[in-house]
């Protein structure tokens, strides 16, 4: 091979490497973008069953008395937090558009004060974004002293736009310890 064509080949290699590196960088960028994209995608579609993290306003639409939805509450506590969480009524029937209040009781069964937070999840996930919460203990961390009991409300509304095939919504709350996150001894 002549020196000229060798140089040409070297230039070609350098060009290919540059382009592959650009592709690589693009894919790194894409990977980083996937996280916010996933969050936005789930927020729009409710796919991961998450509900809004802040209080929502009451949707002013008419109450749809033609159908009623069964709303079930499930609660559980994650390991490492000696708390119990219970819904006063584990199941209620509501009309879409109706503003309803449900009470929950938190109990710290442990010997020490703890911080905890309830994380909600709605299934079927198609219904998640139609489950609107005006007030919820799940918007912030709670602190309970040893042995303390506390009643906390959830005020919610099922959006009248809820697809007709959804007849039942299950709201699951999982209690997680937030001691470490708030810098307190677990």
């Amino acid at each position: 091979m002549s020196a000229n064509s060798r140089q040409e080949v070297q230039r070609g290699i350098a060009r290919t490497v540059r382009r592959s590196l650009l592709l690589l960088l693009a894919m790194v960028g894409f990977t980083l973008a996937l996280i916010p994209l996933y969050d936005v995608f789930c927020e729009v579609t409710g796919l991961n069953g998450k509900t809004a993290a802040q209080a929502q306003v009451i949707s002013g639409e008419q109450i749809d008395t033609s159908r009623s939805i069964e709303v079930q509450f499930i609660t559980r506590t994650h390991a490492g937090l000696p708390w119990a969480l219970a819904a006063e009524n584990t199941s209620m029937r509501v009309h879409p558009g109706e503003v309803v209040r449900a009470d929950f009781e938190f109990v710290n069964l442990g010997q020490e004060a703890h911080w905890g937070k309830a994380v909600p999840s709605v299934s079927p996930s198609e219904g998640a974004r139609y489950f609107r919460k005006m007030e919820c203990f799940c918007f912030r961390e709670q602190r309970l002293e040893a042995g303390e009991r506390s009643q906390m409300p959830l005020v919610f509304q099922v959006d009248p736009d809820l697809p007709r095939e959804v007849k039942q919504l299950t709201l699951a709350y999982t209690l997680y310890s937030h001691d470490q996150a708030l810098g307190e001894k677990p």
Partner: peptide, 30 residues
């Protein structure tokens, strides 16, 4: 080239979740 960065990204997020208190994959932290 297309998918190895995704693997690198996912194990890096694990590393951050384990050692640096992030919660990419931890429901407790959102």
């Amino acid at each position: 080239i297309a998918v190895m960065p995704v693997l690198a990204g996912v194990v890096t997020m694990m590393l951050l979740d384990i050692n640096f208190g992030t919660s990419f994959f931890d429901a407790a932290g959102g």
